[in-house]
Simulated scan of single mutants.
Amino acid sequence: MGTTKPHERLSDLLASELAQVNRLIAERMASEHAPRIPEVSAHLIDAGGKRLRPMLTLAAARLFGYDGPYHIHLAATVEFIHTATLLHDDVVDQSGQRRGRPTANLLWDNKSSVLVGDYLFARSFQLMVETGSLRVLDILSNASATIAEGEVLQLTASQSLATGESTYLQIVRGKTAALFAAATQSGAVIANAPEADIAALYTYGDALGISFQIVDDVLDYWGSNATGKNIGDDFRERKLTLPVIKAVAKADAEQRAFWARVIEKGDQRPGDLEHALDLLDRHRALDDTRAEALLWADRAKDALQGLPDHELRRVLRDIADFVVERVS
C-alpha cells in the first residue's frame, strides 16, 4: 500500500535531495574536539521528526526548476535553526519530553542543551553564507531574530491574563511561523522565482506555520501522539495559549479567578487541569480555536493558487489540510 499522508508523499518526491540534506546535516553537526555536540544534536535530529521545514525549502526550489546545490544548504540551515530553538525551548520550559523521548536537557543537562543549540545556530549561518546569496542570508537571519523575539515575548506575555489574541498571534508568528515562511521564501529566492511567487510562498509558509502552532495548542488539551507531549503540558508550564485566551474572554468572575490562580500565580492543585478542561469545553474554546486553525490553513492554500501547476504544489496544498486534520 502506498503512503497517503502528504508529508510522506512530499518525502518520496524529494527523496534524493533529502538524502543529501541528511548527509550534510551529519557532516556539519560533527565536532572534532567536542563529541557531546553530535551526541546531543543527533538525539533530537534523529528522533523521528518529519523534516517538514527543510522539505518546504526543497519543494519551493523544485517548483521553479532549480538544479543547483544550494537548496540543500538552505534545507539543512532550516533544520539546524529549528533544532537549536527546540534545544533552547526545552531548557526554558523545563520540558522532560520531546517527540515522545526524554529531552536533551533531561538526558544531559541544561548547559549542554544551550551550548549545542548555540553551535547549531552558528553552523546554520555558515551554511547560509556558502550559498553566496545576501538576500537568503537576510531572510534567514531575520527569521532567527524574529524567533528569538517571539520566545522572549512569550516569556512576558503568556502568563498574563491581559494577553489577547493579537499578542498571541504575534508570539506565534515569531516562534513558529517565521521559520516556515523563511523556509518557503528562501527556497523560491535561491531558484530565482518571480517576485510575485516568492511573496506567495512567504504567505503560504506564514499561514501554514500559524495554523500548525494553533493546532499544537489545541492538541495540548485534546491529546494526540502528534506532538510527542503530555496532555496539559502548556497548562503546567502556565502558557496562555489561544484556547485559554478564548476561555478567559468568556469567563465569569469566579472562572477568571481560577485562571489567574493557575496561570498568573502558578498555584496549581490536584484537579485543576480537569477543571480547566471542563471550562474549555463549556465555552467551546477548543472548537473555536480549531476553527481559527482552519481559517489559516485556507489562507495557506489560497496563496498557492497562482504558482506553477506542479505535483509539488498539490502536495503543499494537501499539507495545509493535513495540519488541521490532526484535530478533526
Results as ranks from 00 to 15, higher is better:
Asp109His: 04
Ile81Thr: 05
Thr85Gln: 09
Lys111Ile: 08
Arg99Leu: 13
Leu115Arg: 08
Arg98Phe: 03
Asp89Asn: 13
Asp109Leu: 01
Leu115Cys: 03
Pro102Val: 13
Asp89His: 13
Phe80Trp: 01
Asn110Met: 09
Gln94Phe: 06
His82Phe: 11
Lys111Leu: 10
Leu74Cys: 04
Ser113Arg: 04
His82Glu: 06
Glu79Ile: 09
Leu115Gly: 02
Ser112Trp: 12
Ala76Asp: 07
Thr77Lys: 01
Thr103Lys: 13
Thr103Trp: 12
Ala76Cys: 12
Ala76Asn: 07
Leu106Tyr: 01
Leu74Glu: 01
Lys111Asp: 12
Asp109Pro: 00
Phe80Arg: 01
Thr77Val: 14
His88Pro: 12
Asp90Ile: 06
Asp89Arg: 15
His73Lys: 03
Asn110Tyr: 10
Ala104Ile: 14
Ile81Asn: 05
Ala84Leu: 02
Asp93Met: 04
Ser113Asp: 08
Ala104Ser: 12
Thr77Pro: 02
Thr85Asn: 10
Ala84Asp: 03
Ala76Val: 06
His88Gln: 13
Val91Pro: 07
Thr83Met: 02
Arg98Trp: 05
Ile72Trp: 01
His88Cys: 10
Pro102Met: 11
Thr83Ala: 08
Leu106Cys: 02
Ala76Ile: 07
Gln94Ile: 10
Leu87His: 12
Leu107Thr: 04
Leu74Val: 04
Leu106Thr: 08
Leu107Ser: 00
Asn110Ile: 08
Trp108Gln: 05
Val78Arg: 00
Asp89Ile: 10
Gln94Arg: 15
Gly96Val: 10
His71Tyr: 02
Gly96Arg: 11
Gln97Ser: 14
Ser95Cys: 10
Ser112Tyr: 12
Thr77Ala: 08
Ala75Gln: 09
Ala76Gln: 07
Asp93His: 10
Asp89Ser: 09
Leu107Ala: 00
Ser112Ala: 15
His71Ser: 15
Asn105His: 11
Leu86Asn: 08
Val91Ala: 02
Thr83Lys: 01
Leu106Asp: 02
